[in-house]
């Protein structure tokens, strides 16, 4: 676990909240370009603990159809990295929960790594998830910059990841460790079969043995109360993505508050 020393909302969340942590993924600029911040506000009002804001990319290979389509729609509406930071410029006056940006490497490279980290710090982003940035490249070229800006970098582990590599990923990851529930892209449905319990129990054991120092959040396939509760049996919390994006699809700006409240209360 890489330590980020100063005040960081993710650290505070895990330190203070013991019950299962609910994190929700939303696509920036979806369902409408200007909905980014209203969705965040509605999520906070609904009692969500943390949010991952998806930065849309044209070729999201780790994502299933729902997030692909929301990304395409957001890009067609005009979403860019620059615009996202402009939208988030004032977000900390209204939203206090931890905010994580999730996206793909190329748009960040074009924006500039240092400039990206600086913009994150400026608007109050607590962590970043970039699934296609290999750990080895992150450590060499990105980590010193992220550390300077007190930015968590959250890494993924999967059922195929060996114990030894999980320990390495955990060493570099900070904020939490993102456990991908099963082999697959986003948008599947978690099935608690033997392979799943074996994998989740393996993570629990590694945590007990202190080979994982980070808190663990489970994501991919968490789509309703049953799958959220099932995942939280084994981890500090879970992340809901595609199911939420799907629920938001077609929602008018006026309906966002009630739509989000309805969806989140269904998980409780």
């Amino acid at each position: 676990m890489t330590t980020i020393h100063v005040h960081n909302r993710i650290n505070t969340l895990f330190a203070e909240k013991k019950s299962p942590i609910l994190s929700v993924y939303c696509t920036a600029g979806f369902p409408h370009l200007e909905d980014t911040v209203p969705v965040l506000e509605a999520l906070q009002d609904s009692g969500v603990d943390m949010v991952e804001i998806g930065m849309p990319f044209s070729d999201p290979i780790a994502d299933g159809q729902i997030i692909q389509e929301s990304s395409t729609q957001a890009l067609l509406s005009g979403m860019t990295t620059e615009l996202l930071f402009a939208q988030l410029g004032n977000v900390r006056s209204r939203v206090q929960m931890p905010l994580v940006l999730m996206g793909y490497v190329n748009p960040v490279l074009q924006y500039g790594i240092e400039r990206f980290a600086a913009s994150c710090a400026e608007v109050g982003i607590d962590g970043v998830i970039l699934p296609d940035l290999p750990m080895e490249v992150f450590v060499k070229e990105w980590q010193p910059i992220f550390q300077r800006y007190n930015l968590h970098h959250i890494l993924l582990v999967t059922p195929q990841t060996s114990d030894a590599r999980i320990a390495m990923l955990d060493e570099v990851s900070s904020g939490f460790l993102y456990a991908v529930s099963s082999a697959g892209t986003t948008g599947g449905a978690l099935s608690m079969d033997d392979a799943r319990t074996t994998y989740f129990e393996r993570l629990q054991r590694l945590r007990r043995e202190k080979k994982i120092a980070n808190h663990i959040m489970i994501g991919f396939g968490i789509h309703d109360k049953a799958s959220f509760d099932a995942a939280c049996e084994y981890a500090d919390g879970a992340i809901i993505g595609s199911a939420f994006v799907k629920a938001l699809s077609g929602t008018s700006p006026e309906q966002i508050q009630s739509k989000v409240q309805g969806f989140i209360s269904g998980l409780r």
Binding site: S58, E82, N106, P107, Q110
Partner: peptide
């Protein structure tokens, strides 16, 4: 194109200033 990352490697890539392919 400009240097960027697609399909697992860093290479020349036709892309927007925002990094969309």
């Amino acid at each position: 194109g400009k240097p960027g990352v697609l399909h697992g490697s860093r290479t020349f890539l036709m892309q927007t200033p925002d990094g969309q392919v």
